[in-house]
Design a protein around this nucleic acid. Structure first.
Lengths: 228, 228
DNA sequence: CACGCAAATGAATAGCCGTTCATTCATTGG
DNA sequence: CCAATGAATGAACGGCTATTCATTTGCGTG
């Protein structure tokens, strides 16, 4: 027989398989707390995210965070790492597409960056909250820099190979790659702070249009047809 | 005869004309404190910027901030407004260039965005610190939204006029404008967090290259010559 | 020179938040 | 059913920080 408690409405359910055990394996609790942290940061901002807030969001007690992470700082670090890992795993799939052709790889990267699960509003809020602090916390900086580097390296290689194989003597691949990376970041910001103006679909169109301008033989603008 | 005190090395000097008066007109003190805030946020991050930190950076006492601004929140808001105003004033000059031609206007906007005084590292740090919180503070949001809007409107008009006058039937001006705005934000982020990789000159080249791809008849890539 | 006013100070205060830890509770194996 | 284990709790504590305000300091005026 399974114990049965009242469950806060917003408690993450997919993880705690059966209704809710009062005691759970550490790995499960850790993820539960990380997800609660993401929601907290997304809803109240990093500045107003306290141990108490997160614990309440998770439907657990205050002490639990220091139990599973050593400190609040530890929780925040692990939350960032969680998102960075998720992104890098998704990147690996896109890298596979690049084996088919560089252009397919770039297109896969664009699809990835504006996929729902990756640029969900909650997650964007967390990314930017940490970006505001990354200059000052060596740990944040390392995690972010690693993610950036793996992205940049991939995109750079794809652009270079496309320049060679696709015969674009006048295109500077590194310039295009840097621009693509910056454009993506900027569109993420738009998605976060101006959701009424920017959508994932529009962001994707803008990015593909950028690539189409740079590599006209390999990217076609999606039909601009539907003017809304 | 002028009173003469020891002055902290990093104290802002240009404002307090003669060495330093112990008592100063409010307007002057306010700016002094705002500039100290910018340095603080840039050096320690928003999270570690306290009343004490700012006061010390300004070489003044704790109470002074509540005297001149009603609260810490007031100081931060005014700091953001200070930067937003500075940016908008600079925009006005660029708008003048647009009267000559839309292309000149766009070029002026690019020059502006990557001008030293505008995208100084300290100021970028402040922008991103506040962007991380703007979703949650109505006041920040309003200030940022106003700045964004005046920028977007200008760029959009320039792109539209260039499309018409320059005969670019296949270009969607709003798409280019949104992309330009996002690209600029993304490059700002690069300038802040990866100064060893991104420079103001490179950022300018990337942006102009974006415009050259979109409006080839009106922008020429700056000679890619110097490969470093 | 003295007076009055405004600017500036900084010690005191009150509230908040991260951390600790003694206690409670659920689960598992015997 | 009992003991043992360790997960979870939440009250208590201490440090930090924004704010207040009584006092001091400097400046202009009469």
């Amino acid at each position: 027989m399974v114990p049965h408690h009242g469950i806060p409405l917003n408690a993450k359910r997919s993880l705690a398989a059966v209704p809710r055990r009062r005691t759970a394996p550490p790995e499960e609790r850790r993820e539960q707390l990380i997800l609660a942290t993401i929601r907290c940061v997304a809803n109240h901002g990093l500045a107003d995210t306290t141990i108490a807030t997160v614990a309440q969001e998770a439907g657990l007690s205050q002490g639990i965070i220091n139990l599973h992470f050593r400190s609040k700082e530890g929780l925040l670090t692990e939350t960032l790492r969680y998102l960075a890992d998720e992104y890098r795993n998704a990147c690996r799939d896109a890298a596979a597409a690049a084996d088919v052709s560089p252009a397919a790889g770039l297109e896969a990267m664009v699809e990835l960056d504006f996929r729902r699960g990756i640029c969900a509003r909650d997650k964007l809020a967390v990314w930017f909250a940490f970006w505001g602090e990354r200059k000052f916390r060596p740990t944040y900086r390392r995690i972010c820099a690693d993610r950036d580097k793996s992205y940049d390296d991939m995109v750079r290689v794809m652009c270079r190979r496309l320049c060679e194989q696709g015969n674009y003597p006048d295109v500077e691949p590194d310039l295009v790659a840097d621009g693509l990376s910056a454009l993506t970041d900027g569109l993420w910001l738009d998605l976060l702070v101006r959701p009424e103006t920017m959508s994932r679909e529009l962001a994707k169109r803008i990015t593909l249009s950028y690539l189409a301008d740079a590599f006209p033989k390999h990217f076609r603008q999606p039909p601009a047809a539907a003017r809304r």
